[in-house]
Design a protein around this nucleic acid. Sequence first.
DNA 1: ATATAAAGTTAGACATTACTAACAAAATTA
DNA 2: TAATTTTGTTAGTAATGTCTAACTTTATAT
Lengths: 219, 219
Amino acid sequence: MISQTEENYLKALFILANENGETGVNELSKFLGIKMPTVTSMMKSLADKNLVRYITYKPVTLTVTGKKEAASIIRKHRLTEMYLVEKMGFGWDEVHEIAEQVEHVKSNALFDKMDEALDFPKFDPHGAPIPDKNGKIDFPDQRKLSECKVGETIQLSGVIHSSDAFLKFLNSKNLKLGTILTVQLIEAFDGTRELSYNERTAEVLSEIACEKLLVQNLK
Amino acid sequence: MISQTEENYLKALFILANENGETGVNELSKFLGIKMPTVTSMMKSLADKNLVRYITYKPVTLTVTGKKEAASIIRKHRLTEMYLVEKMGFGWDEVHEIAEQVEHVKSNALFDKMDEALDFPKFDPHGAPIPDKNGKIDFPDQRKLSECKVGETIQLSGVIHSSDAFLKFLNSKNLKLGTILTVQLIEAFDGTRELSYNERTAEVLSEIACEKLLVQNLK
DNA sequence: ATATAAAGTTAGACATTACTAACAAAATTA
DNA sequence: TAATTTTGTTAGTAATGTCTAACTTTATAT
């Protein structure tokens, strides 16, 4: 039996995994807001349970079992977010904290019912892909808005590392997933972008904001 | 901040409270499946937090604060059960375990949304009353089927201390809340009841089963 | 009214999950 | 390459919530 605490570590490892699937202890510590010695000892304990591979002074990787568990928790989280938005009338800026708790509920039936009621959605309300029952994720072909060049016209398809405050900010700018944007101008000295979308012709977004926005090419 | 564990103790105290609102440590221990010394020490800790009144060797009572907290958890549990049955297509025999977990979610908004979607229900799928936001419970005028006399015609209005197995058994007998029953016969030697309802003329229920069924007079 | 049974408490141990302080290894920079 | 910074580990402590063993108080029954 995996505890809620352990589930949170596995989820973090899944989310933070770089190209090699590795995550440093320091990175994990900062992400979870838990001090490094605690993380180290948890890594030992998860390694004993065969959920991660851990060698002292080396980055941590999830085992196949660990990865499956992590994907299952992320699936529960994202299905919950989608259910709250689509079926219960919550805003996309209100669902993270609730999903953070509901994701730990031990009942496949509950999440399968959500999945079905939502007609098996592929993405959550923030554009993040929802793993299927086998833990498989269908990653869309996305890049950051901050990487787009002047003149490009693309579609907003995801928001990453989003605080509720940032989502409320997007609401206030009338930016939603699906909005079609054109990059009008990039300020050389601070990376500020000027964008046009809908009837808006010169909305200004900071570079930091643009790094949190994912876009797709138009189809 | 009250932990999940503490919430479970408060809920149990609320449910087990007798006419004086008292509960013995032993009773609590058996109900929760937790050994008595653990219960004793938890009672001390809850008393320090002003959630219960505890004097050694005396039964425990909830304080006003404790009672309010307990009612809030029970409200969450029963709203969740009702939501799962009415909005998600679960059977009344499938929802207890899920609600047992969801009841600990810290989000008034979630339960208020359920309440609204269900149009502010007064009872859960097992006929138990749902406390309102202020912790007030509207107890209906119910008695046990085991207390009814031969010839009485009443309406099934609640199921108490019900295991999932017992609920499945009721399903198999086609007994639901609202079913109108007539007590045809009570066996003197073992308390077995013969009941008629719908087209069924002589369904036999044990005394133990009849003690778990609550009924109301017809209106 | 005393013996026995039931209920309740105390003391001490243990697992989990967190922390701080001190130290060690690895990476970076001068 | 040597010094410094960053990253990571070890050791020791603490809170929470559980347990068993031993003991005490209260209730029950003969």
